[in-house]
């Protein structure tokens, strides 16, 4: 595959929404299973890390610790729901259920199918955040209404992690090898992206790595500005970084999947 084909703009039609709608339909049908994890997760994080560890930490930069990690909980959920939807979820639909084969036997193209999967991954993130927000608000650890901006932010971040996940799905030899990005990329990112402690506490080199290679760093920073709220012009840098990376990776992931499925 040449660089030209890897970065070629894919032709995606309105039919991508049909794939999105199919996934939504399944999601709604099993809504009970899908509704509780974000609910429970918010409680678990807040009580264990926020109230447990937070009692010892007190505050960071004048912000109560539990308020400091609340946006990180949101950002990590955005990352996990989109990334895992577009890795394990998409891989199962592609390889085991042969759903993509069935879809491309209709007017849908493979570009439509993958674009629909990416949009769906982002939608999962939005839903996750929308369910968590009331819990966090009830605990009084985020401020309203600025925190509502977390919802559009979840879409941008969700699309970014959906595209990252789909790139791995495009090149993984099997389902098991998806564990590599899950443990070697997602797990370190969860811990070292300014989530549970400020990056400034670590040697400067960690900060550079996080800013350059860990997309979560930018999402957490932008999310935190919204929930505290404490906006600064830096949010524009974080947003531009995410939009640029998302744009490029959406294109690359569609082309990788096309190469994988169309022979």
């Amino acid at each position: 595959m040449t660089l030209m084909t890897l970065f070629a703009i894919p032709r995606v039609s309105y039919r991508a929404w049909k794939v999105w709608y199919r996934n939504l339909f399944v999601f709604i049908r099993t809504w009970k299973v899908n509704f509780f994890p974000p609910f429970i997760e918010a409680f678990l994080y807040l009580s264990a890390i926020g109230l447990g560890i937070g009692t010892y930490v007190g505050s960071i930069d004048g912000i109560p610790y539990v308020n400091f990690i609340a946006p990180a909980i949101l950002a990590i959920s955005v990352m996990n729901s989109a990334f895992f939807e577009c890795t394990y979820g998409s891989y199962v639909r592609m390889y085991y259920q042969k759903s993509f084969d069935a879809m491309i036997a209709t007017p849908l193209s493979i570009e439509d199918v993958i674009a629909g999967e990416l949009l769906w991954g982002a939608t999962r993130s939005v839903m996750y955040v929308a369910i968590m927000l009331p819990v966090l608000a009830a605990f009084g650890v985020i401020s309203l209404p600025a925190s509502l901006l977390a919802i559009p932010l979840a879409f941008i971040g969700g699309l970014m992690f959906a595209a990252i996940g789909m790139c791995f799905t495009g090149i993984t030899p099997g389902l098991e090898t998806l564990n590599y990005p899950a443990y070697l990329f997602i797990t370190p990112m969860t811990l070292f992206s300014g989530t549970f402690f400020p990056l400034a506490l670590l040697p400067a080199v960690f900060g550079y790595i996080a800013v350059l290679f860990f997309p979560l760093t930018h999402l957490v920073a932008a999310m935190r500005m919204c929930t505290i709220p404490d906006f600064s012009p830096a949010i524009l840098v974080h947003l531009s970084w995410m939009v640029a990376v998302t744009g490029v990776l959406c294109i690359v992931s569609i082309n990788l999947m096309k190469r994988r499925l169309i022979v």
């Binding site: 259920q97 042969k98 084969d101 069935a102």
Partner: peptide, 18 residues
């Protein structure tokens, strides 16, 4: 392809029902 596929009925070898 889309205009052709709109008028085709395809039964694949593998069972790929949803």
């Amino acid at each position: 392809p889309a205009a052709i596929k709109a008028r085709l009925g395809i039964v694949p070898q593998e069972t790929n029902l949803d």
